[in-house]
Design a protein around this nucleic acid. Structure first.
Length: 452
RNA sequence: GUGAGUAUAGCUCAGUUGGUUAGAGUAGCGGAUUGUGGUUCCGUUGGUCGUGGGUUCGAGUCCCAUUACUCACCCCA
């Protein structure tokens, strides 16, 4: 016999967990809608060519590929070509892959349906994504992202609104967070400053680790990446920036005075922060130059959210991407978006005991009978109760009352209606309140009134 | 891809320097109570000790391999 199991990094969800997950999804959805976002869905799988090359080499490795159906080896091996080139081979036998995030499929979606879309397009999307990563705490191979993006709009007002969305959602969920901001343009400016623009990726990856591994280790890593001693030295004032957001920006302006693109990035941050000055964010908003985000496609402001009271990676992220639709042939469409990591948010709410007490009402009233006669007597009554909008069920098996009561108890059903010969004779039920333990004979027509 | 740890009943875990027939709690089932759950008491089902090999008179325990899972790094939601 086969032992039942699911792939690692995936999970089953029990009813209680679904209730809590829906609490998260509903909260996010409500805020999205309030800001005018409309929902779409895209398929779990995309053509592999849609996904490849969008997330860097690392990302390509983490894509789940779907083996072609049928005889997938058919015509794969030609005579002069060996099976040496695994990459080529993989491309031929797996032409589809599971989506890695919601942003790239959305870009594909926008280009494919551009005639039917009114821009600026504000869409939200809540669906699972898959990554062939090694699972660990807060990291799953299948997890839900909740994305809100605005495409076809350049204004930084959109950045502001998305930050408001982030703030509002986490406030509603009672999670204390820091919203970290940076700008890819500032990072580019920094790379220019030290004269190694081509090393931008290495630099950002290294300075992203500043608070994790410390200044010395970062400098060593930079040196290891063939960045000259002199350049590393020039980088120091930036790594050592301290003080309020405004302080940092002022100093940064000085340091980057010779970089146009760097100045542009600083301006953008200033503008967004000025917009946000009025809206009384609950979250801490901080400029964080160590924030790099590996994703290749961000070009402007980068956003990341961290929970203050829990040890967890980022629980939301986002940013501006100027030319994401470009690779699908639609130029000049800029987008900006954020993404909530529902599963990490779940873990944090669980850890901090922040899920609301009240469980969403399921069955309110259970009918319990001694025999088939009682069950038949109860059936029309159940219908009546349901017609009144009250979730009710009947224990359909003939079983001992004790067992049926236990069922009601396990399911947290607040009321039980017991049906026996006496009750049938009186055209009534014995209505028991499972919380207080009280019970009394209630006429059939009074049941609804009694349990409301 | 790199490193560390764990694996014993459905679940959570004990199991001594290697020594008789591997235990507990919990869940399940039955009963105390044939018209009453959540509390209590009694009884009871359930294990190829992850898998394969080795050392030994003897292995849940020691060694090797393997698989799965967990945690950390990389990266990320």
């Amino acid at each position: 016999m086969q032992k039942p199991a699911i792939p690692k990094g995936t999970r089953d969800f029990m009813p209680i967990e679904m209730e809590r997950r829906n609490y998260i999804f509903d909260t996010i959805k409500k805020v999205f809608r309030k800001y005018g976002f409309v929902q779409i869905e895209t398929p779990a799988m995309e053509n592999i060519s849609t996904l490849l090359g969008k997330y860097g080499d690392e990302g390509d490795k983490l894509l789940f590929r779907i083996l072609n159906s049928g005889n997938f080896f058919d015509g794969v091996f030609s005579e002069e070509q060996d099976m040496v080139d695994m990459k080529e081979l993989t491309l031929k036998i797996a032409e589809k892959g599971l989506r890695y995030d919601l942003t790239v499929p959305f870009a594909r979606f926008v280009v494919q349906h551009k005639e039917q879309i009114t821009f600026p397009f504000r869409r939200f999307q809540i669906q699972p994504v898959w990554r062939a990563d090694r699972p660990q705490r807060g990291r799953y191979r299948e997890f839900y992202q909740c994305d809100a993006d605005i495409v076809g709009a350049d204004s930084l007002i959109n950045e502001m609104e998305l930050i408001e969305v982030l703030d509002e959602v986490f406030d509603k969920l009672n999670i204390k967070v820091a919203i970290k901001l940076n700008n890819r343009k500032i990072l580019t400016g920094i790379a220019q400053l030290i004269g190694q623009a081509d090393k931008i990726t290495d630099i950002t990856v290294a300075i992203d680790k500043l608070d994790k591994i410390g200044l010395d280790a970062v400098n060593k890593e930079l040196t290891d990446k063939d960045i000259s001693e002199e350049s590393v030295q020039r980088l120091q004032p930036i790594l050592l920036l301290e003080g309020s957001n405004a302080d940092k920006l002022i100093k940064l302006k000085e340091i980057l005075h010779c970089s146009d693109i760097g100045q542009k990035g600083i301006e953008e941050i200033e503008t967004v922060m000025a917009y946000l000055a009025d809206c009384k964010l609950k979250a801490r908003l901080e400029l964080d130059l160590t924030l790099a985000r590996g994703l290749n496609y961000y070009t402007g402001i980068i956003i990341e959210v961290k929970a203050l009271d829990a040890n967890m990676g980022s629980i939301s992220g986002g940013g501006r991407y100027d030319n994401l639709t470009g690779v699908f042939g639609l130029q000049g469409v800029s987008g900006v978006g954020v993404s909530f990591g529902a599963d990490r948010i779940y873990d944090i709410l669980q850890e901090l005991n922040l899920f609301p007490e009240k469980t969403e009402a399921s069955t309110k009233l259970l009918f319990v009978a001694f025999d088939s006669k009682g069950i038949e007597y109860a059936l029309p009554i159940v219908r009546k109760i349901r017609k009144a909008g009250i979730p009710a069920e009947i224990y359909s098996e003939e079983a001992k009352i004790k067992k049926q009561m236990q069922y009601a108890n396990d399911k947290n059903i607040p009321f039980v209606a017991i049906v026996g010969d006496d009750e049938m004779k009186a055209n009534a039920v014995m209505l028991k309140n499972m919380t207080t333990g009280e019970q009394r004979l209630v006429a059939v027509e009074d049941i609804v009134k009694e349990i409301q």
